[in-house]
Design a binder for these strands. Structure first.
Length: 442
RNA sequence: GACCCUAUCGUCCAGUGGCCUAGGACACCGCCCUUUCACGGCGGCGACACGGGUUCGAAUCCCGUUAGGGUCGCCA
């Protein structure tokens, strides 16, 4: 399906993809994909920063990770390039000439400024509705500069020129640009162009209500990549920030969101980023990913935490990780959750020790050890049967044996299914760990 | 300060004049399930910022106030 709909994401190369920018890119992407239009990626590097390519690469990485592919732009090419503003001087020059020829500019200390027509401008925003701006007063709405004395360009101008040249039909961007829009519209008109449709989406805030900025933890997409979040989960969560399917569904496949996405359903008020909800959503996705993906994500997280799983047999590693799936929400929780599989140097939880390594429990753990030692097949089923039989013999609840045993073998009060974890660990290791734990009893 | 946007549970969303004693999700708290922790199930806590209108009837419409956010750059 072809369409004249063309949208763009136009970040400046800051070296990382801001979560708010990601959401803006996402909404542009959804809009483009929904309508069968095109998404253009344009790098706004008018400042001609040194390492533009490198800094921009970080943004590509973030977009790619989120699965937001662009149809035109860096790495993709296209008929409306170049896609770096620093390479578009001639184009800006041409439009400036047009502006000057039309008598829309004046010089001010070497800078070129655009003379506002001084009228009311109505912005008909797809999200915010019709807004009437009164630009008649130069005191409150000064004429904007278009070009500096040193020849470099001002954002507003190049932004508008590029959108004209790239035939952008819809500008979907952050609400922080809403107040600038009437000025942009004046520029479009002075350049003889029809303004695109605008859609300003509300900003994303921190818990304390402040605008999310680079300083804030979790403000960069990279943060979630490093912490082992799943891209579909982060993307799904971002969709929910300012948009909803209107039927109370929270977890939706991206294909479904593309299908039903509509700017009409975009909320007008600011949203607060809620890490807890993302954490939950990620867990929902982590529970349903395939074994292969779960394990590879898990191994990456273990490696990042310095856990040396490479020294263990492949089958052991695979089985160990599988006992953890369904239990953790994000992969950065894995080292603490299942790290005991990959070291014999168990660190015991102090509260657990005080609670379970008691004089009363000593003979119980010894009994468990004895029963395990006598086991032919060290399978989860056999272990369970044995442990329950031991509890029966001792006249105690199963829990009275489970807790000390778990603590002795893993050092923790919580973890994967005890029976399965013991099976994975194997008889030899289990007995050795119980012996060591026994020596720690008060 | 001027201009603009916004205003429903702590948070994210439903709700567009009567179906609302306001619904869902996250978080939190109970109970159940259970070898732990999770998951899951059940239940609880919890909001229409305030004041005026309009209307037979307002969370929903209008005005004002307050609050939050944004923009007013030779930053992007």
């Amino acid at each position: 399906m072809s369409s004249d709909i063309r949208v763009r994401f136009a970040p400046s190369p800051t070296g990382y993809l801001h979560i708010g920018g990601a959401r803006t890119a996402l909404f542009n992407w959804l809009f483009a994909r929904h309508h069968g239009g095109k998404l253009v990626l344009r790098v706004e590097d008018t400042d001609q920063a040194r390492n533009t390519e490198e800094a921009a690469a970080a943004i590509y990485d973030g977009l790619k990770w989120l699965g937001l592919d662009w149809d035109e732009g860096p790495e993709a090419g296209g008929d409306f390039g170049p896609y770096f503003q620093s390479e578009r001087h001639e184009i800006y020059e041409r439009h400036l000439k047009k502006l000057q020829d039309g008598g829309h500019t004046f010089e001010d200390n070497g800078a070129v400024r655009f003379r506002s027509p001084r009228e009311h401008v109505v912005v008909d925003d797809l999200v915010c509705g019709q807004i009437d701006f009164d630009l008649t007063n130069p005191e409150t709405h000064p004429d904007m500069t278009v070009r500096r004395p040193d020849g470099s360009w001002i954002f507003h101008f190049v932004n508008v020129v590029d959108d004209i040249e790239m035939k952008i039909s819809h500008v979907i961007r952050g609400e922080d640009h809403l107040s600038n829009t009437p000025k942009h519209i004046e520029l479009y008109r002075a350049l003889g162009a029809t303004p695109p449709r605008f859609a300003h989406i509300a900003l994303i805030h921190n818990k304390d209500g402040s605008k999310m900025s680079k300083r804030d933890q979790g403000a960069s997409v990279d943060y979630y990549i490093k912490r082992g979040y799943l891209a579909p989960a982060v993307r799904n969560y971002l969709c929910l920030l300012g948009w909803s399917p209107k039927d109370n569904r929270e977890k939706l496949p991206i294909e479904e969101i593309v299908r039903i996405f509509d700017l009409k359903n975009v909320v007008r008020s600011n949203a607060t980023f809620d890490p807890a909800k993302l954490h939950w959503l990620n867990g929902e996705y982590a529970r349903e990913v395939g074994e292969v993906e779960f394990n590879s994500m898990g191994l990456a997280a273990l490696k990042a935490a310095g856990v040396k799983w490479e020294e263990y047999p492949e089958e052991y590693v695979r089985a160990a990780l599988q006992t953890c799936q369904g239990k953790i929400n994000t992969f950065d929780e894995l080292p603490a959750y299942g790290g005991f599989y990959f070291t014999d140097d168990i660190v015991f939880n102090p509260e657990g020790v005080a609670q379970h390594f008691t004089a009363e429990n000593r003979p119980r753990l010894e009994a468990v050890r004895g029963a395990f030692a006598a086991l032919e097949s060290f399978s989860a089923a056999a272990i369970e049967t044995t442990l329950k039989a031991s509890a029966g013999n001792l006249g105690v609840k199963v829990g009275a044996l489970v807790h000390p045993t778990r603590l002795a073998v893993t050092g923790s009060n919580a973890g994967p299914s005890l029976y399965h974890l013991l099976e994975v660990l194997g008889k030899e290791k289990v007995l050795a760990r119980i012996d060591r734990a026994l020596s720690l009893f008060s």
